[in-house]
């Protein structure tokens, strides 16, 4: 980082925060503050939805995931376009016609107050905890890379978001997201192109594909059926469909984005374009990871990508052993570079025999590299007890900080901040909307003027932001807490989706049956989490099915009871 990078980083951050605050000034009534006066065109709805879903970890982790594991993560998103189509047909016209502020408000018109409050409570639980991690995860990586204090980094990101979300509400969130996502995608593509242009021997895009393919990284589609494994086409289409139906249809962080659309058509088109663009966008981000992987076939990769941690380990008695392993790694790299060049030569000559020979030899070299890397991780774990030796989140950012020219480093760091801010802003805004509309205005203070509710929403936004930052500083002490929050969506989403699916499609089920079914389903899911080894992705399906089936049975029994009583 030099002065140009710092200037670019802070100018970008200041412009975005200033723009959001200025553009959304004067949101005095509750319609303006919580729905942005329903003024968004479809393209802004689409950008808002995409910016909300893509958190900083998406842009840091996904290239690292492709680097280590290939492109197969893409399959996880195949259910998303299907969910967009279903929600455009069902949820969007319903929410618009009922003029709701939150998704849960609809549940009271369909069922009753207790079901609405239960769903709102589930949402506040899952989103309130995860907003802390949305801030914490990038803050951890940024603080490591920049040498900042982790808690100060958390407060810095949280405060930036708070400035414009508190002052401008939903409108500020959506207005800033269109620029944030533009900066994010531009920065990512520039980083990918940099990796590509630094490849030797005029390697073409197709050759980069082939090279990655020969090394097993282009594992885009797996046709085997196993719902407990996230990475096959059926998990993506079925498990992903359930997950994205609940995320986009029943999570206020997303529902709040398309409720701000000008009309049913604008909201629908926003969702549908998200369905068109999301998979290609993830493909691009994963492919950037592949380009970094190909780049490191010809340039020396660090043996461990979290440089700060390995440097700490070198301050201990384990330093000699780590240095020895590093020099082994350097030797192996030279062999691999030679083989990668042989492989490119063979691909150009279309010499199948030589391709096969090079591929085999690279496989052997990769195995010894992997063994050296795991030995280094063991040494680091021994040197610093409790250290996190997973370094895939650091692959991309370390590449950026090492190989990108000054100026672009500042831009890419701004990208990480933007991604963290755009997701956090939507989440805080949704938490405040739900707290105000579904809890405060409905059950605590039902009669007051608009000014009162706008002020209350602002304070709830501040409250949730402070809660998120406090939770992040606790999470810093507890690794297993972070893992719990990362799957907390799976714990609540199935039940919430079951409630909403019953509300949309199963007119037979009434309020008491759905309420009891939802509580039983949630208890079963919590039991599964603590006492079984069922894959988390299946929780969504199990929870949803229990709510629907049990709701049916309970309603049938209730109807029988009423019939008997009336005889």
């Amino acid at each position: 980082m030099n002065s140009i990078d710092w200037i670019i980083l802070f100018t970008t951050l200041a412009l975005i925060v200033g723009y959001g605050t200025w553009q959304s000034r004067g949101s005095k009534n509750i319609d303006g503050y919580l729905l942005g006066n329903k003024s968004l065109p479809w393209w802004n709805v689409c950008l808002s939805i995409m910016a909300t879903q893509a958190s900083a970890i998406t842009f840091l982790s996904t290239p690292g995931q492709a680097y280590e594991d290939g492109m197969r993560f893409l399959q996880f998103y195949f259910g998303l376009p299907l969910a967009m189509v279903i929600l455009s047909i069902t949820a969007v016209p319903l929410y618009h016609r009922l003029k709701v502020y939150t998704a849960y408000e609809y549940l009271e018109t369909r069922f009753d107050l207790k079901t609405r409050s239960l769903a709102a409570f589930f949402f506040l639980m899952l989103r309130g905890l995860s907003v802390g991690i949305t801030i914490y995860a990038p803050a951890l990586i940024l603080s490591t890379m920049l040498g900042w204090n982790i808690n100060l980094t958390t407060v810095f990101i949280g405060s930036l978001v708070m400035i414009y979300t508190v002052s401008g509400g939903t409108k500020a969130v959506s207005m800033t997201q269109k620029y944030q996502l533009t900066i994010i995608m531009a920065g990512m593509i520039i980083a990918g192109l940099t990796a590509f242009y630094k490849l030797p021997n005029d390697i073409t895009f197709t050759e980069a594909f082939q090279l990655a393919g020969e090394m097993g990284k282009m594992n885009l589609i797996n046709l085997s059926f196993d719902l407990s494994d996230r990475y096959n086409i059926w998990s993506g289409l079925i498990g992903g469909l359930f997950l994205f139906l609940s995320y986009f249809g029943a999570d206020q962080s997303q529902v709040g984005r398309y409720l701000g659309g000008k009309s049913v058509t604008e909201s629908r088109l926003g969702l549908l374009f998200n369905g068109l663009l999301k998979v290609p966008m993830q493909f691009i981000i994963l492919y950037i990871g592949i380009l970094v992987f190909v780049f490191y076939q010809f340039h020396q990769a660090p043996v461990f990508h979290n440089q700060s941690l390995i440097n700490q380990a070198k301050q201990t008695e384990y330093a000699d052993r780590i240095t020895l392993l590093e020099s082994d790694y350097d030797k192996v790299f030279l062999e691999r570079k030679q083989e990668a060049e042989n492989l490119i030569g063979a691909i150009r000559k279309e010499d199948a025999k030589q391709i096969e020979a090079s591929r085999k030899s690279i496989e052997e070299i990769q195995a010894s590299e992997k063994s050296i890397r795991s030995q280094v991780k063991e040494q680091i774990a021994a040197a610093i007890p409790g250290a996190n030796t997973l370094d895939k989140d650091y692959v991309f950012i370390t590449f950026v900080m090492t190989y990108l020219p000054h100026g672009l480093i500042g831009l890419l760091l701004a990208v990480v901040f933007m991604a963290a801010m755009s997701s956090t802003a939507s989440e805080l805004n949704a938490l405040a909307s739900t707290t105000t509309v579904d809890i405060y205005k409905r059950s605590i203070k039902p009669i007051a003027d608009d000014y009162h509710y706008v002020t209350a929403s602002k304070w709830f936004t501040v409250g949730w932001a402070v809660f998120g930052m406090l939770f992040a500083s606790i999470a810093n002490q507890a690794e297993n807490l972070i893992q719990f929050v990362n799957i907390i969506g799976s714990i609540f989403y199935g039940t919430i989706l079951g409630i909403f699916l019953s509300a949309f499609y199963l007119k037979y089920i009434k309020s008491n049956a759905i309420f009891i079914a939802a509580i039983v389903a949630e208890a079963v899911i919590v039991y599964c989490y603590f006492f079984t080894k069922i894959a988390f992705l299946l929780y969504n399906i199990i929870g949803c099915l229990i709510v629907v089936v049990l709701g049916f049975v309970l309603q049938y029994l209730e109807n029988q009871r009423i019939k008997k009583a009336s005889r």
């Binding site: 492109m71 299907l82 393919g213 885009l220 086409i233 629908r268 088109l269 998979v279």
Partner: peptide, 27 residues
């Protein structure tokens, strides 16, 4: 808006076929 729904589904289907082609021909 039926055409938009079909477009989204068609684009997904085309992408899956393209990715299937890539993963079989580059592996």
């Amino acid at each position: 808006w039926g055409s938009w729904y079909w477009l989204v589904m068609a684009v997904l289907a085309i992408q899956i076929m393209l990715y299937l082609f890539i993963s079989t021909s580059f592996q």
